Amino acid sequence: MLELFQQGFSGLMQQSGWELIAVALAIAYLVLVIRESRWCWPCAFFSTAIFSWVFFDVSLVMESLLNVYYMVMAVYGYWCWQKHNGAAKEKQANLSISFLSFSQHLYAITLIAVLTLVSGYFLSEHTQAAWPYLDSFTTWGAVVTTYMVARKIFENWLYWLVIDSVALYLYWDRELYATALLMMLYLVLVVVGIYTWSRQIRRPPIDESALA
C-alpha cells in the first residue's frame, strides 16, 4: 500500500498543469454542491472542459465524452438552481432536495446497465479504448447521477460512492494520479455531502413572513 502511495505521489509531481487546474476546480465544484451554492456549476464547466481533453489523450474515450456532457449539464444545473419563482423575477426560488421512488431507482439502474453493455461492447469491438466496460459504466452512471445533482435528488450521493470508486481504479490504471487522488477526496466529500444534505432535510423551513 505504501508503494502505491509513493507511486501516486511521484506520478502526481509529473502531471500536467492543466490536469491539476481541472482537479482544483473539480474540488471547488463538489464543496460548493455540498453547500448548495449555484457557483458550483461554473467550476464544473471549466473543470470538465479541461478533463475532456485530458481523458481523450489517454484513450478513455467514454470519459472524455462524459465530460462534454458535464459541460452541458453545468449550464443546465446553473439554470435549475437559479430559477425564479413565478412572476416574481427578482426573487430566487430554492430548489428543494427530493428523493426517488423504488421504481425510479430500478429504472435508473436498468438504464445504466443496458447502456453500459451496449457501449462497452461497441468500444471493445471497434476501438482501442482502455477498459471499455468499466469506462462505459462510469460514464453512463455519471450521466444519470449528474442529472440527479442538477435536480437536487438526495440519492445522487449514494450513486457517486459506487461510480467514484470504479473511476478511482480507472484513473490510477491510466496513470492519471492527480485525478485518482481527486476521486479519493471525492469519496470523503460524498460522505460529507450525505451528512450535510441530511441535516438540511431535517432543518425546519424559515418563515420569511416573520422576518419582514
Rank of each mutant, 00 (worst) to 15 (best):
L2A: 09
L4Y: 11
F5A: 11
F5H: 06
F5N: 07
Q6P: 00
Q6D: 10
Q7N: 15
G8I: 13
G11P: 05
I27C: 13
L32H: 06
R38C: 03
C40S: 08
C40E: 00
T48R: 01
T48C: 11
A49L: 14
S52M: 13
W53P: 00
V54C: 03
S59R: 09
L65S: 07
L66P: 03
N67W: 07
Y69C: 04
M73A: 12
V75Y: 07
V75A: 08
Y76K: 09
W81T: 13
K83A: 15
N85L: 11
A87I: 14
K89P: 00
E90C: 09
K91S: 12
K91C: 10
S96K: 14
I97A: 04
S98T: 12
S101T: 13
S101L: 03
F102A: 13
S103N: 11
H105K: 02
T116K: 00
V118K: 01
G120N: 01
S124E: 09
Y133H: 03
S136H: 01
T138D: 04
T139P: 07
W140R: 02
G141N: 03
T145F: 04
T145W: 02
T146G: 08
M148A: 09
F154R: 04
E155I: 08
E155T: 03
N156H: 08
L158T: 09
W160R: 13
I163F: 04
Y171R: 03
D173I: 00
D173H: 07
E175A: 14
A178V: 06
A178C: 08
L181G: 05
L185A: 15
Y186H: 05
V188P: 00
V188E: 00
L189M: 14
L189S: 10
V190P: 01
S198T: 14
S198W: 15
R199K: 15
Q200I: 15
D207R: 06
